[in-house]
Amino acid sequence: MREIAVEAGVSLRVVQYHFDSKHDLLVSALRMLHEENDRRARARVEALRSPDDPRALLRAVLEEFLPLDEQRRTALRVFAAYYARSLTDPELAAVFLHDEQPLEELVAAVLRGAREAGRAAPDIDPSREADLLVSGITGLGMDVVHTRRTPASVSEVVDYHLERLLPA
């Protein structure tokens, strides 16, 4: 907590006033990281040139989980560290593993809308495809962090699956 006070340019007492414990600070920091990443992702998705194109929209959403710039690379590393700690910390796990699945629901909604508009393969199950896309991109992002894959190779995998789901 001393290091955080120094980094923030405030006294240790100020940090202790706002956070009851180091654990409370860690949980709050994780929540703030989620909120900041959500804000950045929404801004990038809203900046799309063709927001009505389901493939472009899904690509933009999925790319948010790839370390394509320093901010996302750092965020992914921090999330990985928090995730590892959450395996033994129920309060951190609650931040990661809550009942809502907004990303999966968003991806499924895009796929469902594309299917209803005749722009997606008619036999897809949007919810199951969303689960696979989201979990897949998370793992692929970690592969990029570990330099097991390149962003370009991951982009090819994403294109492959989006073409399968949303044929041109």
Rank of each mutant, 00 (worst) to 15 (best):
E129T: 10
D131N: 01
L26C: 08
Q16V: 08
F19L: 04
P151D: 13
R39D: 09
V95M: 05
S11H: 05
A5L: 04
E64S: 14
A60M: 03
A93C: 10
F19A: 05
N37W: 00
P151F: 06
R128H: 12
V15M: 10
V6K: 12
L26F: 05
S135E: 06
A75V: 06
T150K: 08
V107A: 00
S86H: 11
L162R: 12
D125M: 06
V157N: 07
T88S: 10
L58N: 04
P167I: 15
I4Y: 12
E3H: 11
R42I: 04
L76N: 06
A114C: 05
S135R: 14
D53L: 04
Q71G: 04
K22L: 12
R164K: 12
D38P: 00
E105K: 12
D143G: 10
R59F: 06
R40E: 07
S28D: 07
S86D: 11
L33Y: 08
L62S: 02
A80Q: 09
R40L: 11
L62K: 02
A121Q: 06
R55E: 08
E156Q: 12
A121F: 00
E7S: 13
D24K: 15
G139C: 02
A109P: 00
V95S: 08
A47K: 15
L76C: 08
L111G: 02
E91C: 11
T88M: 09
D143Y: 12
L97I: 01
D38M: 07
R72D: 08
G136I: 10
V10A: 02
P51A: 03
L165Q: 11
V6Y: 07
A121M: 07
E100W: 01
Y82P: 10
E129Y: 01
R39N: 09
R59S: 06
D89H: 12
L66N: 03
V27Q: 08
G9H: 14
L87T: 14
E116K: 04
Q16G: 03
L25M: 15
R119Y: 04
G9W: 13
D123H: 13
Q71W: 13
A41R: 15
